[in-house]
Amino acid sequence: MMNGKTIKKSGETIEKREKLKILVVDDQSGMRETLSDILQDAGYVVEAAVDGYCAIKKAGKQFFDIILMDVIMPGINGVEAIKEIKKLNSQTKFILMTAYSAETLINEAVKLGIYQYINKPFPPEQIISILENINKNKTKNDE
């Protein structure tokens, strides 16, 4: 589990983490804002999308290493959005976030090959820990 040390303090630069681009997709503005701030301070490049359509549009324009995707959203749900984005880029890793017992959708997402799913509310340390693991693996592969 990560602790406060992972947060980027003012003036510091974290080189390798900045390589990871993260897209936070959630219809709740509070979720987008807070997660973006936490992850940016942890050294990641973060963008946000308000729904599935917006996420597909953004993923079409640029590559994201990781997409944190909410499940239940207006318009298309998170799983449908993952299907579309996977067509654009198969390298992106998906972390599904859900506040609902959407077991059918989660099972579908697992079959699609998502990296992980987490239940809301989750301690931010948990998401940072997951991202750290992905980052480590990516660094190893790059080397």
Binding site: Q28, G30, M31, T34, A99, K120, P121, F122, P124, E125
Partner: peptide, 12 residues
């Protein structure tokens, strides 16, 4: 759960 997750993020 959504607002709780947001409050938790903010507190963190």
């Amino acid at each position: 759960r959504n607002p709780l997750a947001i409050i938790q993020n903010s507190a963190y």
